[in-house]
């Protein structure tokens, strides 16, 4: 079995922790911004930290938009993390006017809550639908850092939520594409279980 997982490097954020976590679950991380290597990948992680507009801009300046869209449509196992989830939607209130990848219908909006923004820290996952990655971690705590969250048009893609004064979308998924708003690579043993499930997942 091919144990390689391609981690897309487009200059947005800290890929080291994702790469180290992938190593820890016994897979081989390949951090790359080479479209050919991404096209040839059998499994892909799209990480991301920062602002929606900057990340989308970086994806474009690395000429990666097309190859990512192709991978999403080709049925390859794909995991978006944090901004990597948000980029899969159509746009974001954080950067109005910048189009996302649009794989999922809906937009990213600012969290409205009486609590502090960003939503930073550990929160409990409540599963909403069957998920190939989260079935073993229902009710567990995972680590979040974000100020915006997804509002999918099709609520059926929401696989988990958490409560932060308002209901926050913690993960979405459809077919070969799964994405999490939290950081599995920073969520201790629970996060590693999620990455392990991704490694073993055959959609």
């Amino acid at each position: 079995m091919n144990k390689q997982i391609v981690i897309i490097d487009y200059g947005s954020g800290n890929l080291h922790s994702v790469s180290k976590a992938v190593t820890a679950i016994g897979a081989d991380p390949l951090v790359t911004s080479d479209p050919q290597k991404i096209a040839a990948a059998s499994k892909i992680i799209l990480p991301g930290v920062g602002a929606f507009g900057d990340c989308m801009h970086n994806l474009q300046s690395y000429h990666l938009e097309e190859v990512i869209v192709q991978a999403l449509q080709a049925g390859k196992p794909f995991l978006g993390i944090c901004l990597g989830l948000q980029l899969l939607f159509e746009g974001s209130e954080e950067t109005p006017g910048v189009a996302g990848l649009g794989f999922f219908k809906g937009n990213i909006t600012k969290i409205v809550t009486p609590y502090k923004i960003p939503h930073m820290g550990w929160n409990k996952l409540e599963l909403r639908a069957a998920s190939p990655l989260l079935s073993q971690v229902s009710g567990e705590y995972v680590y979040f850092v974000h100020s915006y969250h997804a509002q999918p048009l099709d609520k059926g893609i929401v696989t988990a939520v958490c409560d932060y004064g308002q209901e926050v979308v913690a993960s979405v998924g459809r077919d070969n594409v799964q994405a999490v708003q939290f950081h599995p690579e920073k969520s201790s043993s629970v996060g590693l279980k999620i990455l392990q499930a991704f490694k073993e997942w055959q959609p």
């Binding site: 922790s17 180290k20 920073k186 969520s187 043993s189 590693l192």
Partner: peptide
């Protein structure tokens, strides 16, 4: 540490 312990 970051290679073995996965928390912030």
């Amino acid at each position: 540490t970051a290679g073995e312990v996965f928390m912030p």
